[in-house]
Every structure is written in C-alpha cells, then in structure tokens.
Amino acid sequence: MKNYFIAHGTGRLEMGRELKWKFPESPDYYPISKVKIEHHKFIFIVWIQARLWISR
C-alpha cells in the first residue's frame, strides 16, 4: 500500500504480522498489528495512533 496512503512500511501486509507504517503527514512510524486478510473480501488491521495531530 506504499504510495497509496502510507509513505513507508517496514514490511508486507501479511496475516499475523506486526509492522510499522509512516504516513506522509507525520514524521513518526505507527505500529500496525492484528492483521487479518481474506482474499478479495477484506483487510482488517489494528492501528493505534500514538499522537493526535491538530492543525489551526
């Protein structure tokens, strides 16, 4: 999903794997866990945002 909505990832999105994503809007990496994929049906991930970004 690189260049789709994330700037960089630490690996392929695979079931059971934990990785980190970097978004273009943030200098930080965020953990992605509990990946579940059912081919041609859905992709489920848990992404816990570490910080709340507020712009004025």
Rank of each mutant, 00 (worst) to 15 (best):
M1Q: 04
M1L: 05
M1D: 07
K2N: 13
N3A: 08
N3V: 06
Y4P: 02
Y4H: 09
F5S: 03
I6F: 03
I6W: 06
I6D: 02
A7N: 03
A7Q: 06
A7M: 01
H8Y: 08
H8F: 05
H8I: 06
G9E: 13
G9V: 11
G9R: 13
T10S: 14
G11Y: 08
G11M: 04
G11S: 10
G11F: 03
G11N: 10
R12D: 13
L13K: 03
L13Y: 05
E14P: 00
M15Y: 07
M15P: 15
M15E: 14
M15W: 10
G16V: 08
G16E: 12
G16K: 11
R17F: 04
E18N: 09
E18M: 11
E18R: 11
L19D: 03
L19C: 08
L19Y: 03
L19H: 01
L19Q: 04
L19G: 00
K20R: 12
K20V: 09
K20H: 13
W21Q: 07
K22R: 09
K22W: 00
F23D: 01
F23Q: 00
P24V: 01
P24F: 02
E25P: 00
E25G: 10
E25N: 08
S26M: 02
S26Y: 01
P27F: 09
P27R: 12
Y29E: 05
Y29G: 03
Y29R: 02
Y30R: 12
Y30P: 01
Y30K: 06
Y30F: 15
P31R: 10
P31L: 08
P31M: 05
I32P: 07
I32M: 07
S33G: 00
S33L: 02
S33W: 08
K34V: 13
V35D: 07
V35G: 05
V35L: 14
V35H: 10
K36I: 03
K36H: 11
I37P: 10
E38G: 08
E38W: 14
E38D: 15
E38K: 15
H39C: 06
H39T: 12
H40M: 07
H40V: 03
K41F: 10
K41H: 13
F42K: 05
F42P: 04
F42Q: 08
F42C: 00
I43V: 14
I43H: 04
I43A: 05
F44H: 12
F44G: 13
F44V: 11
I45P: 11
V46R: 14
V46T: 15
V46N: 14
W47A: 06
W47M: 04
I48G: 12
I48W: 09
I48Y: 15
Q49I: 13
Q49L: 15
Q49V: 14
Q49C: 12
A50W: 14
A50E: 14
R51G: 02
R51E: 07
L52M: 04
L52H: 07
L52Y: 07
I54Y: 08
I54R: 00
S55V: 05
S55M: 03
S55Q: 09
S55I: 01
R56N: 12
R56K: 12
